[in-house]
Every structure is written in C-alpha cells, then in structure tokens.
Design a protein around this nucleic acid. Sequence first.
DNA 1: CGCCAATTACGACTATAGTCGTATGCGACC
DNA 2: GGTCGCATACGACTATAGTCGTAATTGGCG
Lengths: 217, 217
Amino acid sequence: MTTLLIADDHPLYRDALRGALSLSLPALTLSEAGDLTSTVDILNREDIDLLLLDLHMPGSNDLFGLIHIRKLFPDVPVAVVSGTEDTQLISKIMSAGALGFIPKTASSGDIANAVQAILDGDVWLPPNLSDSVDEIDEEFSELADNVASLTPSQYKVLCFMRDGLLNKQIGYNLDIAEATVKAHVTAIFKKLGINNRTQAVLIASQLELEPPATSDH
Amino acid sequence: MTTLLIADDHPLYRDALRGALSLSLPALTLSEAGDLTSTVDILNREDIDLLLLDLHMPGSNDLFGLIHIRKLFPDVPVAVVSGTEDTQLISKIMSAGALGFIPKTASSGDIANAVQAILDGDVWLPPNLSDSVDEIDEEFSELADNVASLTPSQYKVLCFMRDGLLNKQIGYNLDIAEATVKAHVTAIFKKLGINNRTQAVLIASQLELEPPATSDH
DNA sequence: CGCCAATTACGACTATAGTCGTATGCGACC
DNA sequence: GGTCGCATACGACTATAGTCGTAATTGGCG
C-alpha cells in the first residue's frame, strides 16, 4: 500500500488532485496538509511514499521550504506542483532535489502518469518542457546544498535576515542574545561562502520567488 | 518622419524586428543599440519617437534600466520587448512606465500593429494577456517612482550595493570618499522609505530579474 | 560511563554601517 | 549679480555588523 501526502494551501486544488489520482491509481492512501508546519508533522508521524508539494504554501518560503523538507526527510520523494511555466525556475526546483514537476494545468491523466513514474523511481517532467529543463543547474544545486547544511537556528536567522531585520530584532524574536545571533550570522557566511549580510540576503531572496511586498492572488 | 530606436543585445533579433517593421511601416527611420549606454547616447543625440527596449541588455539591469530611461527621457515612449510570459512581471513593466509590451513570440503583423498603436498614443498589450494585466500594480508603481527620484550618484551607489559591495569598495569604484558613499546611502534610504541596507538590496533585487549568478543564454 | 563532535550560547573586541552638520559647486530664476 | 534649491562632497560621531575565543549542552558511540 502506497501513501501520498498532498501539501497545498488551496483546499479546492487538494480535492481536484485527490480526484485525479483516485480515478487512475485507486490503491492509494492520501493525507493532506495546508501549510509547511503540518506537512512536516505528518511526515514525522506517517510513512509517506511520495509528497506532492505546492511551493506557495504558508510558511514554505518557496524553494526554501523544498530545501528544508529535502534536508529533514531525504528519503521521501518529492514532486513539486506549481503554476509556473518558467523553465529556469523549474530547473532550480529540480536542482533543489525534486524528483518531478507537475504543472497545475496538467490533465488528470498526466498527473497520474507523473505520480506513477516517480513512485517507480523515475524523474518526471512535463513532456513539452523536458527538452529545456533536462540539465540541472550545477551552481544552484551547490547553493541548495549549502543552504541545506544550515542548522535549524541558522536557518531561522537567515529567514529573519531576508526580511530586513537587525540582529537585535532577530535576537528578540528568537529569545537569544544579540551576540548569539551574530555568531549564527558568521556561521551562515562561512557555509554559504560569503562575507557580509548583503550577499546572504541576495541568496535568500533567490530562494523566495514571490516578492514579499506583492500579494499572490 | 518617425524614428524608431531598437535596443536589443541580439543582432539577429534586431534584424528580425527591422524586417517585421519595414514591411508594414515603410515610412520609418531605424536606429539600433546593443547596450544601455549606447541607447542613452542615441536618445541624447537623436530625436526618437519610440524606443523598443529589450530588458536583458548588458548594463540594463532589467527593470532598473527601464526606470532609468523613463527618468532620463520621460517624453520618449517605450515599448518593452521580452520573452517572458509572466503576467506579474508584465504588470510591473507597465507600472514602471512602459506604454506597451511586445512578446518575442509575436508575429510581425502584431509587432507592426503594436508599434503603430503606441505611436498613435495608445497602450498596447498582447491580446491574450490584456485581461490579466489591465490593472497596474500601485505598490510597485510607487516603488518605481521612488527609484526614479534617485540622483545619478545615488543610482550608481544602489547598483553597487545590490552587488554586495562594502561602502569602502563603492567609494573606490566611484573615486569618492567612503563618507560620501555613506551620505548617498542615507539619502537612498530616505527616498525609498527604508532604514537599512538589507531592505535596499531587497528592493533592488526585485528590479533585477535575472539572478546575478545565473547566465542568461 | 567517558569521549568526541556538533550545536547553541555569550562577551569582548574590531570593522563597517549609518546619522548629522556643514561646505562647495552649479543651474534656475528673478 | 544675487540667492535659492539641489546635488555632491567630506569629517566626526554613534549604532550596528561581524570576528574571535570560550563555555555549556546535547547526542552519538566505543
């Protein structure tokens, strides 16, 4: 018995996915999550054979969340479900460790095929895009590895840095001394191979696709 | 006699544009530029009725370059030519003051129509996208105005900040004292309504679409 | 248990960022 | 020609960022 986890903040789209899968692949158990925290909870509790992950979930921070989950559960295959058609972005998604990319516009047949292929251990990309996305972005892959090597504390600090907070404010939020925040910041610099906060923020903003100021709609 | 300036770093695409336009609109004079500096030079020397601008030109920094040109030559209509299909991005382009958006996949007939419409004072968008892009992004429009209000020196400093340079390094590049760089930085903060370098870098990175590390190809 | 490695934590110190006041040059406009 | 506004320029000062050394804690592992 194989178990799928559908992680998408849109309940209607979860329903649609469930419908598309139950038709072609009846021998499945399905779980659902609406944000990154509950996704991690379920992955901790249950034995999941494949995660269908929407990048724009609350708390996910887009590629950040994918890297995060890949680090916590390296054995769980992940297929990213997204509305984007940007081949560069899809290339980044694959470089960050996804085993498949399913466009939100895909037919239920394609979706079922994709899920089956990934469950069989294959990599799956939409047919019309597989040409332009075949090679993974080495540079970005290394970047994703570096970000994945951050400890939980360092990860949180980097998230706050990306929001433009001062070390003092980060310390207040995490309830630690400013000196400790600075130590984390220095450790992040070393792991990412950089030497100041500006470069760290640039890297972090590459991993978050939605500009913070603009609404998703 | 109307004069067009084609600004695109790809000579072949300049040729293609010229061909598409000379067929339908023979009464045109055409100039060409391959990077932002020569584009500005030509706009200074010649009387241009319409600029066809590719965002990914060398030195352009994408939306940064559009805002820059809109500020230097507010009376010259600009139509952006780009390969993107991202409606959010197109909305930003229009909010930054472009009068039209021409996809690189457009047919020569559509291109000629678009050019004619903008020369007539209309706004032109690809037919299939005009629904989703009709409203301009107020927030982003204000941001573009703020960036446009930067003086030339401040603009240069912001570009260097976005590249992760220290104030000292920026001063060396511009041949001014570090104290002067700091004064510019403070002025930038006030104009953009922010109070530290991290937030400035985030804003600047929103205006540059290509991640610095990745090649365009 | 005892050991080691990694993480988290902090203080003291140095470097850089950012503020404020001020001076100079330059074009617009009476 | 005066003077007003603005961009540019810089120095002195304060705040924040970033480095280094060190200690307490935790989780494997023999």
